[in-house]
Amino acid sequence: MHDFLQQLVNGLSLGAIYALIALGYTMVYGIIELINFAHGDVYTLGTFFSLSILTLLGVSNQLHGAALFVDVAVAVVGAMVLCGLTGVIIERLAYRRLRNAPRLAPLITAIGVSFILENIMQWWRGPSPVSFPQVIPNPGWAIGGIEIQAKQLMVIVFAIVMMVALQVFIYNTKLGKAMRATAQDRDAAQLMGININATIALTFLIGSALAGAAGFVSGVYYQSTWFFNGFNAGLKAFTAAVLGGIGNLAGAMLGGFCIGIVEALTNLKIFPSGNQWSNVVVFSVLVLVLIFRPSGLLGESLPEKV
């Protein structure tokens, strides 16, 4: 039981990172039905951006007091802004012209954009792993024998706050309403005076900004990254989005946590050498869920998608 709870905590923090990336996948899919394969690479870009900002600020070690909050805030916001802009540029250059093309064209383009981003990052930061400073203090607590570290808590809280903020934005603001309208019926929305291009650009801005934030969080969490990192994380996050019901924000979150937890639980003692089966188990869960609930765990429960 103790092992189970401990692995649950490990799974939650791993899942939180998947969930943050999955939010971006699901938003873009919700509004233009495009699987943005470049999203995982925007996430890696976020780690590199925040690393560059921290280097500019002269941070190479653990921070304390006011400097901790200021520098972390600058790095997170900076990475979010830069990634958001990257997302908008990608949408403008690669996807907008293909908006009315057959669905395969933007899909292949997305794979192409992913390759371009990977190679830009390889050229910029080199093909080797790059280490990331441990900026936040990392004390650990034991609650009833279950250990949790500050950085695990940070990742989980960060993901939940982001999702709630996004939910509030989409359901309680005018821009959010415009996004929902665009998702439901693009032509009708345009007739109602909604600027479609601006709304879709905004979706990419927010989705990519979230990837930027996730990039910072994962940099702090793993203290290392490399240019190809987004491929695997992107694949898992995409799976999370599909598992939860693609197009559904709460579903992306739930899917991310589910996948993180399933992955961690394969390391329970009752599964000897379970770690090597983690991917098999994750994708088997996905297949099973899609057989019984083709639109994902939460896909059918909400009438509107964003």
């Binding site: 092992d3 401990q6 692995q7 490990n10 791993l14 190809f228 961690a264 379970g274 090597q276």
Partner: peptide, 17 residues
């Protein structure tokens, strides 16, 4: 004796065990 998977980045759960 455990085997890790390709591109695995998170070993926390495995190392906890």
């Amino acid at each position: 004796h455990d085997h890790i998977t390709k591109n695995q980045q998170d070993f926390k759960a495995l190392l906890t065990k």
